[in-house]
Design a protein around this nucleic acid. Structure first.
Lengths: 357, 357
DNA sequence: AGAGTCAATGTCAACGTTGTCAATCACATT
DNA sequence: AATGTGATTGACAACGTTGACATTGACTCT
């Protein structure tokens, strides 16, 4: 590999001068600089990052510990967000996977890699909002946590989606559309999001002075003994529709439930946006965009979690605070129902369809 | 940071002996080794990877150039597959994004980072099967390409999903179920997969001695002027159903189209798996798993592309061959139609529902 | 006893870079 | 002419590690 000394030889200077040129030191004569740059170009020289790291004692590496974020559909956006910010600060991401099934040794190896590379900070990112036990190494290096909350002894700054606020907002939105009978097709109760979203839903109804009708609340997913989950939308929908008066809107705990709901309703001769309003959470594409009518849903702030986590890390905050990031309401058409008059326009801001990020 | 010399001082040896211990050199007395290991433990010493890289001239870094693979739902599995294999060979991935919209400077910067870190190889991975122009740097370092094919001067070993074979196989499968009128709801013709999948479909019909009925073939997605694509399932389905005799099975170009098809059929009082068989491509979860009945579909070999690409890279093959990887047929229930007798059981192997990878 | 052998450990240089400090040179000032 | 000034350049050390080679001591063999 061509080194700084090869360049120096070709340019007829000492290697220190070459170092000055590649570091934009102004104390180099224009003519010399030109000669050096020419030599660099000709030899295809690139500074050796390992040598720089050694000399400067700064690696420029941020460790990204992915707890399956590259597996789960949109959680990869956490990585993308972190990368955008890292880029802007001339840091590089080193991504390691921690597959839960891969066992402890694998996990330890992943951490070792990052520490041997002298990562200047660590980001732990989860595939979905849940509890995690952070590795002890995260207590030794500046670290942050995205899309999960810590259970063990190690606590670090944490960035979570604000589930309850999102549920509050979307329910308020349905109320503002004039709905008064809003059913809720919830998540597997084992999910952290399940209780928070339901709490937001209840809060919105209560603050609107509407008594929560427990008959309108059903889990659409239940935990199976094997740890998987099973959908119960078909059963739930029949019970919901048996209510009288029938609900005019159904809020789904996640987009895939909404997809099943569309299907179940169509099978019963009911049309979303015609006979019943539907709204949901996650904005999981292509589900939310390809359903007809387009699904009105609260988009998970994955990108933003990644960005803020990295910002926080680079800013050097060590306090183990928790920041909850807002979902973005993506208004499509599924919330529109003919013959319903919107009331109390709460002048809410919203985004119509998916903005490019 | 604690170095090898600190350990040596504490253990009462020369630093060279410590080096021997951490490199498992057998020429160290057991007693000495124990003393050194103890010192390492006590100080929390970790070898400095930058120094090792410098000394050994080997970085252990593989550059992973992500052309939006962390954005697109399942293409992140390419990264995961590559990582699995890298792990097994004690290599580390350095992931950089090349967002097409980020411009040339950004792209150049990403490459620079990898070369300055002395990446020993490069993997370029695309979000979906398409044509790419490889950066010239990929001609200078061992490189491979996954999920895309090169258009420019730089050619490297390439790993693609075998679209045509997949279409051939799934169509044969439908034929084996007894279907003779199989419609095809295709992709946006601008996609590389579009023509290949359609070709496989045609090939299967022809080899079964069935004349291809052009009235049964429709694109379900068309390109819009702004570069986006627009779904035309609703229009296409009416035309398909107008045929007589009506098709008994519909093959969709991708799972999201199948999702729309389920919906369109339900709205017309038709049930998938009851009145019409449906099969598709991609196995995009949760669509394919949450649809009822479960969608029979050909799973894209993302993980396998990542694995093989990395294998090839580490094996040192430089020949710019193209390897097409088989899809896996995921048999769920959507292909089952009552009152149809399977014929000519071709004794095909299949996987029922999604195996964990 | 002297030579030879082997195991265990140590010394030194080098990898490529940058910070510190010194040297050189042209030019202006006294 | 001697001195000072500032701009430009160079010599050298050090970052942490490992390969090549040297040293030491214990032991065996004749």
């Amino acid at each position: 590999m061509v080194s700084i000394k090869d360049v120096a030889r070709l340019a007829g200077t000492s290697f220190k001068t070459v170092s000055r040129v590649i570091n934009d030191d102004p104390a180099v004569r224009e003519e010399t600089r030109a000669r050096v740059l020419e030599a660099i170009e000709e030899l295809g020289y690139r500074p050796n990052s390992a040598a720089r790291t050694m000399r400067s004692q700064r690696s420029g590496v941020i460790g990204f510990i992915s707890d399956r974020v590259t597996t789960q559909p949109h959680s990869g956006d956490i990585l993308r967000g972190a990368q955008q910010v890292a880029d802007a600060h001339d840091k590089v991401l080193m991504v390691v996977n921690i597959d839960r099934d891969a066992g402890f040794r694998h996990r330890q190896r992943a951490l070792d890699i990052l520490l041997e590379r002298r990562a200047e900070g660590l980001i732990y990112a989860c595939d979905y909002h849940r509890e995690v036990e952070l590795p002890k190494e995260m207590g030794m290096v500046p670290s942050v946590l995205a899309n999960g909350f810590a259970s063990g002894a190690i606590r670090v700054p944490t960035f979570l989606p604000d589930e309850q606020q999102a549920a509050l907002e979307v329910t308020r939105f349905l109320l503002a559309q004039g709905h008064r009978r809003i059913a809720y097709l919830g998540l597997n109760p084992r999910l952290a999001a399940a209780s928070l979203r339901q709490a937001g839903y209840r809060q919105a109804l209560e603050e609107a002075g509407i008594k929560v009708d427990e008959a309108l609340i059903h889990p659409a997913l239940v935990g199976a003994p094997d740890g998987d989950e099973r959908s119960t939308v078909e059963e739930a929908i029949d019970r919901l529709l048996a209510n009288s008066p029938r609900p005019t809107a159904i809020l789904c705990g996640q987009d895939s439930t909404a997809m099943q709901l569309y299907l179940a309703l169509a099978g019963r001769g009911l049309g979303v946006g015609r006979d019943l309003a539907v709204a949901s959470f996650d904005d999981q594409r292509p589900i939310s965009t390809f359903l007809t009518p387009g699904l009105t849903t609260m988009r998970l702030p994955h990108l933003e979690m990644g960005r803020q986590a990295m910002h926080c890390l680079l800013a050097g905050s060590r306090e183990a605070t928790t920041v909850r990031l807002p979902f973005v309401r993506i208004e499509r058409e599924s919330h529109l129902v003919a013959g319903l008059s919107p009331r109390s326009p709460l002048s809410e801001s919203a985004v119509s369809d998916g903005p490019r990020q």
